[in-house]
Design a protein around this nucleic acid. Sequence first.
DNA 1: CATGAATGAGTCTTCATTCAT
DNA 2: GATGAATGAAGACTCATTCAT
Lengths: 219, 219, 219, 219
Amino acid sequence: MARAIPTIPRKSASQKRSKATVETLLDATARVLVRQGYDRASTNRIAETAGVSVGSLYQYFPNKEALVAALVARHNRELLELVRHAVKKVASLDLATAMRELVRAAVDAHLVDPALHRIFAEQVPRMGQLAKIESLQQEAFLLMRSYLEEHGDEISVRDLDAATKICVTAVEALTHEFVINKPDALAGDRDRFIDEVTRLLMGYLMPGRVPDEQNRRRT
Amino acid sequence: MARAIPTIPRKSASQKRSKATVETLLDATARVLVRQGYDRASTNRIAETAGVSVGSLYQYFPNKEALVAALVARHNRELLELVRHAVKKVASLDLATAMRELVRAAVDAHLVDPALHRIFAEQVPRMGQLAKIESLQQEAFLLMRSYLEEHGDEISVRDLDAATKICVTAVEALTHEFVINKPDALAGDRDRFIDEVTRLLMGYLMPGRVPDEQNRRRT
Amino acid sequence: MARAIPTIPRKSASQKRSKATVETLLDATARVLVRQGYDRASTNRIAETAGVSVGSLYQYFPNKEALVAALVARHNRELLELVRHAVKKVASLDLATAMRELVRAAVDAHLVDPALHRIFAEQVPRMGQLAKIESLQQEAFLLMRSYLEEHGDEISVRDLDAATKICVTAVEALTHEFVINKPDALAGDRDRFIDEVTRLLMGYLMPGRVPDEQNRRRT
Amino acid sequence: MARAIPTIPRKSASQKRSKATVETLLDATARVLVRQGYDRASTNRIAETAGVSVGSLYQYFPNKEALVAALVARHNRELLELVRHAVKKVASLDLATAMRELVRAAVDAHLVDPALHRIFAEQVPRMGQLAKIESLQQEAFLLMRSYLEEHGDEISVRDLDAATKICVTAVEALTHEFVINKPDALAGDRDRFIDEVTRLLMGYLMPGRVPDEQNRRRT
DNA sequence: CATGAATGAGTCTTCATTCAT
DNA sequence: GATGAATGAAGACTCATTCAT
C-alpha cells in the first residue's frame, strides 16, 4: 500500500521543483532589475543570481520579455489583491470615507515594492506581452467605476467613464509621485498626502459641497 | 593678432557647421528612438541616419547617454517655451480661466512630439545626466506656484507647495494619458478633456464654490 | 531457476516494447529531420515528437550521431530490399531489359522517402558511424557487377569494376536529380526518363550496336 | 597639387583594406569548413582564424549563411572560369574530342579545391541565398546545350534539353566521385577515367557509331 | 527502466567606442 | 576635424547530455 500510487507524488514532486525554480527565477529577476536596472538585467545574470542555469531559465520562459512579463504579472496580482480587498471593504461606506480608504489602498499598493514598481514604470518597454502591465490599471478602472456607479446619487458627474478615468489616473500618478519620487512638498507625511488627494477627488466628484469636516478637522 | 580677424569668421563658420551637425544628430536620434525604440537606437545607426560618421558623433558627444540627454534637453526647452508663454499670458486672468488655459498649454506641450515623449517616458533609463528630464517638471512646478502665490486670495489651500505639486502632477499625468495613451473614455474630445481637468483643479483649489458656469453650459 | 520461465516472456515483452520505442524514435527522427532540417533536429525535439522522454532516447542511443546513423541504416535496408529484389528478377533477362528494370528500381528506391533522402544527401555530416551511408552504394555496386559478370558476353568493356562503378554512379546521380530535384528538362515524365538512362547505359555497355528497337518505338 | 585629390586615395585605401578583410574572411571560412566541417564552423572561429574580430565579420556579412554563400559564389566563379574557357576552346572541334576535353575540364574544376568542394556538396544546407550553389550547374547546363545545339548534325537525340541535362549530371556525378571519393575502381588513373566517361557520352549522343579509335588506342 | 528538470559550454549577433588614415 | 574599419565584451538563446526522483 505504501507503493500504491508512486506516480502521483513523483509528478507532484517535480511539479513542486519546477514551481520553486520559477519562483526563484522571478525573485532573481526582481532583484537584478532593482539593483542593476532593466538594461543590465541579462538572462545570464538573472539565472546566476537565481542560482540556476540559463538553460533552466529558458525551460520556463521563452525569452527575456516573457520572464519580465511574468514578474510584472505576479506583482500586479499582489497589488490587485490589495485593491480588490479595499474596494470590497469600502462598498457600503459614504463617498468621502470610501475615497480616503481607496487612496490609502493605492499608497499601500505602491509601498509593496516601490523600487520594483519604479523600474516597471520607468524602464520596462511596453511591447507585446507586456501590454499586461496595463491590465492592472484596467482592473482598477473597472473596480472604481462599479463603486461610483453604486453611489451615483452621491456624486454629480456627467460622464461616468470619463470621471472614473480621471480619478484613477490622478490617484495613480499622485501616489506614484508621493511614494516613488518623494517630492519635497508633501514629503513623508502620509496622512496629509491622503487628505489632499481625497480633497482633490471630492472636489471633483461632489462640487459645490461645503468642504466636509474631514478636511477641516484642524480648522 | 594679424590672424585674429580671419580666424573669427572661419571659426564662426565652423561653429555654424558644428551646430548644424549637432542638430542633425539630435534629429536623427529622435527619429531612430521613435522608429526603433531605445534599445535598438545604436550610435552607429544614429550616425548613419544623420548622414554623419560615428567618429563625428563622438566628436560632439562623449557617449550615448550624453546624446540622449541633449535630445531630452532640447525637447524640454521647447516645451518649456510653450509653458512659460502660457503662464505669462495667464498671469492676470481669474483662476478658472487661467487653469483652463494652462491645461490647454499642457495638452499642446504633449502634442509637440507625442511619440518621442512616450519614448522618453517609457524607455529611457533615468541615470546620470538624464536627471535633467525632471528639470521640466521642476520648472513647471515653480511657474505654477508663482501664479498661485499671486492669486492666493482666490484659492483656499493650507500648503501652497503641496497644492502646487498636486496640481502639476495631476495635470501632467492626465494630459499624458489623454495624449499618449488615448483612453476610450475621453477619447478624442479635447475640449471636454480640458473641461474635466479644469473642474478637477477648481474643485480642489476653490472648494465650496458652486460649480461655475463654464461647467454648466449644458444645464 | 524457478524464476527463469516467467522472465523470458517478460523479457521478450519488454524487448518488444524496446523495439517499438526504437522504431518510434526513428520515425520521429525522420519526421523532425524532414520538417526542420538537420540543424534544428535536436534530441529533445525528437524525443518530444516521439512522445518519449529524452532520458529514454539516451537509453537506446548513446548520442545523436548514433540515432541518425540508425535511421540511415534502416532507410538503406529498405532501399536495399528493393534493389536486391529487382536484381534477382532481372538475372535471366537480356541486358537492355535488365538495365531498364534496374533503372526503374532505382527510381522506385528514390521514391520511398524522397524528402528524407534529400536530407541525408545534403545535410547529414559524413562522420564516424555514418560511413554506413555508403554501404548502400557499395552493395549496389556488388549486385550490379555480379549481374554484368554473368552477362559478360553481351557487353564489351575492358574493366568490369570501372564500368560497374560508372553505371552505378551515373544511375544514382541521374535518378537522384530526377526524383529529388525534378529538373525542368525531363520533368515528370518518368518513362521517358527511364528510356534515356537506359540508352545511356546501353550505349556505354554495348557500343557499336544499332540503336535497339526499344529506343526507336516512336520512329 | 600634391594635395589635389586626397579623398580618392584615402577612400580607395580603405576600400583596399575592406576588400582584403573580406578575402581573408573567405579564406578563413574555407579553411575552417575544410578542417572542422560545417557544424563546427562558427563565426567566432572563422573570425579568429582570419585574425579579425567577429565584429568585422558582421560588418561585411549579415550572417553566417551569407558568409558561406559568398564563399560558394567565389568558388563557383573560379570553376565557371575554367568551364567557360574549356567550352570556348572546344567550340569548333568534333564531338568526340570536344566531349573528352570537357570531361577533362570537369576533372580540373573538381581539382581546384576538392576538400572544399566536398563540404559544399555534403554538408552545406541548401537554403535561401545558397540556391546560388546550383547556379554553377545551371550555367554548365547552358554552355553544354549551346555546344550541342551547334553540333546538332553530329548527334542524334530527340530532346536536346533532356540529353544535355543527362550529360551534365552524369559528368558532374562521375567526376565528383572520381576526384572526391576516389573509388577503388578507376582509382588514380585520370586518363582512363576520362576515356570511360567520354565513351559513356559518345555512346549516348551518337548511338550506332562504331566505337571510335580514340577509345581503342590500346587495342 | 522511464522521466524530465537541470546543466553550461557554445552559438550567433549587436553595439559602444577607438583610432589609423 | 572627418571618416569608417576594427574591436571585443557582452547578450540572447540552443542543445547534447546527465542524473535525481
